[in-house]
Design a protein around this nucleic acid. Structure first.
Lengths: 188, 188
DNA sequence: AAATAAATAGACAAATCTGTCTATTTATTA
DNA sequence: TAATAAATAGACAGATTTGTCTATTTATTT
């Protein structure tokens, strides 16, 4: 089945927006740069997206789905239930290395444009809640030592990853995430 | 001793920049809004600060000193060495409530302008390293249970606070920080 | 009181921003 | 092949951006 012409344009726009919004930031990226690097006309962009904020929301939604799908695949590639917990950290570390320590796209968008439109924050919250719920499932099936209760271990892993990704973006390294993994290993 | 006229102007500028950069973000705040709300002339601003980035750096530096001073005072107000660790979380929770869950000014600045000037990121790194070193001191003197080693406990508390503050900014609450406190209590 | 320094208001430049619109060309569909 | 739909280039509007400059007024200092 051939891809529709409209879908190709939309994909080019979202691909470019994703790259630029992440690497430069939403505020520091102009619509003109998006259309130029996406190699499409300005009218085409505004045909598919009503405003720049709409483009941000669409990018966050698409990224959310794709990113979470990769997380699930990465984690469930590891059969051992305790290692699945460690894999959550590994995934974040790997992604940060690939994306050159740009930090979390959702946190980035929240700090930059979280107040501009309720849909932006809603999308960010949805992504965070989904990760936490996913971790909770993994914890429940991990058979950990119970030094901490299930919900406590869930919370701790979640916060450690969030913090670790932030430090990756500040210090341009993943030492904090690796350290978090060592600690987690002691607690499960 | 009377305050110099120049210092009054500088203070008004920094007070206003601090408020606006934090509440609206650096990118979303124009120089014109700063001078208007600070009630000073534009030429005065550019006499004291060479550029908008310079103003950002100056604001971060001043905030860093003040904020860290308050943290130390808050923590050492608590005599019990284990409670000092919990006080680190309490301080962050309290500050987030006061500042209406705006998140961490340094993380905010990093996501928004970390790449614009090396001095910006340097100031942010300096602030984070100082907090971590402070926590390390507290851990060393806490007499904790040693479920984790000193450096591990330090790292965990640091990351939990970083993560907790980020969640405060995303979900506009401090449940995550309170939860982190409960968990920490079990580990010390 | 005279001389010096600093703050003021506001015009201005030059660039950039988002978003609209027109006229033309390129695909797709019937 | 004819009719329909979509993408294109690019001009344009109107607002906003950072930063400069001038002329004037207000403090401070000698």
């Amino acid at each position: 089945m051939k891809k529709l012409r409209g879908q190709i344009v939309i994909d080019k726009i979202l691909d470019t927006a994703e790259r630029l919004f992440y690497e430069q930031g939403y505020c520091n990226t102009g619509i003109n740069q998006v259309i130029e690097e996406a190699d499409i006309a300005k009218a085409s962009l505004y045909k598919h997206f009503e405003s720049k904020t709409d483009l941000l929301v669409a990018y966050l939604q698409r990224f959310h789905e794709r990113w979470f799908g990769r997380l699930e695949a990465f984690v469930h590639n590891e059969p051992n239930p305790k290692n699945k917990l460690l894999a959550v950290i590994d995934y974040h570390r790997e992604r940060q290395q690939i994306r050159e320590f740009g930090g979390c796209p959702f946190i980035k968008a929240n700090e930059e444009a979280g107040a501009t439109d309720p849909r932006v924050r809603a999308e960010i919250q949805r992504a965070k809640l989904r990760v936490k719920a996913f971790i909770a499932e993994l914890v429940a099936q991990s058979g950990h030592k119970r030094i901490l209760a299930d919900d406590e271990l869930t919370q701790l892993l979640f916060l450690a990853v969030e913090g670790g990704v932030v430090e990756a973006s500040i210090f341009k390294q993943t030492n904090d995430l690796e350290f978090a993994k060592d600690i987690l290993q002691k607690l499960i």
